[in-house]
Design a protein around this nucleic acid. Structure first.
Lengths: 188, 188
DNA sequence: CGCGCGATTGAGTAATTTCAAATCTAGTGG
DNA sequence: CCACTAGATTTGAAATTACTCAATCGCGCG
């Protein structure tokens, strides 16, 4: 079950069995059903989560009730309200399950300890964050440079699997388009 | 001159004189005049840059010639084409100076070495990247949630100093708005 | 004085949203 | 197996927002 995490980490840093067991001891497991919330607006965010199985979304809902999706997370992805997790502030995002989900939970405190005691883990974390950073820059450029339709097509090309697991209305909320508009060009 | 870098790093990790001197030995200095390019589309991106003095912009120009600004960087900020720098691919961005600029240059190779040999530097790097990551998520939410005018007002509130150093047309290119549209509500 | 860049203004156009209604679909209970 | 319901998707039409193109304005500098 935690073999997924090991594979995920070993793609960046090699680990001995003992090292991995030690790392794993800093994680706890959590299972959630579809529609359950992992993080709710206004609450503290103590953990970062690694998705072993399932699918979630992190979203912001504004005063007018409109929901914008900041990220999806499926197997081998990490998710949390990073703003709140990093700065130890209250969540502004909601994170909930689109499917039954199994997670490995990494508390900010444990992450800090483990990164301090293990250069390998710190390195792994830096690498992961760096690729996340690059991906976010890419997404910003896509938002700035492309109209709704080409954003849709780019996402479809990049994550075809996502479209089989997520309703189109949520894809729209991720792309920053109304579901009606998205519907109009998903047909072509 | 490099005292700026030291202050910048010591805000996250304490350093002895010897440690800092060692770190600094991995950097080189570069000075550029206004309008000079630091990175050009199609070239290799060997360095990441710390801004000692000055102001730059990193932007993407699409086929139709429209320019979108991914980031500005002024004193104490880092800048490069991260996508290209991290993945060792050709630049898709252009980075040029809006003012006469002094930089400290950190090659990918040196960064790798230094992070490997110094847990402190690796930690510093992770922290910096993490806060950058959070800031980018925030920007994405702003792009998704706010119309042009409120993006303008938010930026003005967050970086008032930027507006004194950067022409409005570039602010527009950063916000993803035409300069005409921005002009229409900058008056109120 | 006049050039040149940046900013503004106006008018028409294109893209997207909103609101409303009609369809379609998957899962549930009888 | 079928009818029914809730959620998801599609479609239409009007309203909005922002864009483009073009012209004008303002100002600092040689």
């Amino acid at each position: 079950m935690s073999i997924a995490l090991r594979r995920h980490m070993e793609a960046i840093v090699p680990l001995t069995d003992a090292e991995f067991d030690h790392i794993l001891s800093y994680f706890t497991t959590k299972k959630l059903k579809k529609h359950q919330f992992l993080v709710q607006e206004g609450n503290e965010v103590l953990h970062e989560y690694f998705v072993v199985k399932g699918l979630l979304k992190a979203s912001y809902t504004n005063e007018t009730g409109k929901e914008h999706i900041l990220q999806f997370a499926m197997e081998d992805w990490w998710i949390t309200d990073y703003q709140a997790y990093v700065n130890q502030t209250k969540a502004t995002l909601n994170i909930d399950c689109l499917e039954e989900t199994t997670l490995l939970c990494f508390s900010a405190e444990n992450k800090k300890k483990l990164c301090a005691e293990s250069h390998k883990v710190e390195h792994f974390s830096r690498m992961k964050t760096t690729s996340g950073f690059v991906a976010l820059q890419q997404r910003i450029l896509t938002l700035l440079n492309n109209d709704a339709q080409s954003r849709y097509e780019l996402l479809l090309a990049q994550y075809p699997l996502l479209f089989q697991r997520v309703p189109k209305s949520l894809i729209a909320a991720y792309l920053g388009v109304s579901r009606e508009t998205l519907s109009r060009f998903s047909g072509k």
